[in-house]
Simulated scan of single mutants.
Amino acid sequence: MAWIVLVVSGVLESVWAVALGRSQGFTRLTPSVIFVVALVASMIGLGYSLRSIPIGTGYAVWVGIGAVGTALAGMVFLGESANILRILSLLLVVAGVVGLKLFH
C-alpha cells in the first residue's frame, strides 16, 4: 500500500509543480488553490509512505516521479521541447526509479 501511495504522491507533485507555474506568482486563484491542495496531499502521502519505505528510497522515487511527470506535462501540454535527448534523459530517471524499487 505504501508504494501505491508514494506513486500517487509523486503524481501529485507534478500537479502542484504545474499549478505553481500556472498560478503566475499566486495571482491566479484556481491554479493557486490546486497548488495548495496538491502540495498538502502530496506531502501527506509522502509522509505516510516513509513510515514503511526507507527515506532515501522513498524520497528519490517521489522526486523522480514528480520530475518526470512535470517534464512530460511541459512537453505534452505546455509546448516545451521534446527532443530525443530530453526523452532519453527522462528514461534514465525512470530507470533509476525502477531500480530503486527493485533493489529496495
Results as ranks from 00 to 15, higher is better:
R28N: 15
L85Y: 13
V93I: 07
N83M: 02
G99P: 07
I65D: 01
L12R: 04
L88Y: 07
G47T: 00
I34F: 11
V61F: 06
F103N: 14
T57Y: 11
A73Y: 10
V7Q: 08
L72V: 13
V98F: 03
G99S: 15
A82Y: 03
G10A: 04
M43H: 12
V63W: 06
T57E: 13
G58M: 02
L39H: 10
V93F: 07
I34Y: 08
L72H: 07
G56K: 04
I44A: 06
S81K: 14
L100E: 09
A19F: 03
G79M: 01
S14F: 08
A71K: 07
G21F: 04
W16R: 03
R28I: 15
F103E: 14
A38D: 00
R51S: 15
L102P: 08
A19G: 02
V61Q: 03
G79L: 03
T27M: 12
V18M: 11
I65V: 12
M75P: 00
M43C: 13
Y48N: 02
V15K: 07
W3F: 11
I65A: 01
V97R: 00
S23N: 02
Q24M: 14
R86A: 08
L78P: 08
V61A: 10
T30I: 15
L88A: 15
E80Y: 02
I44H: 03
A71V: 10
G99T: 12
A17D: 09
L78G: 12
T30N: 15
L72Q: 08
L90F: 03
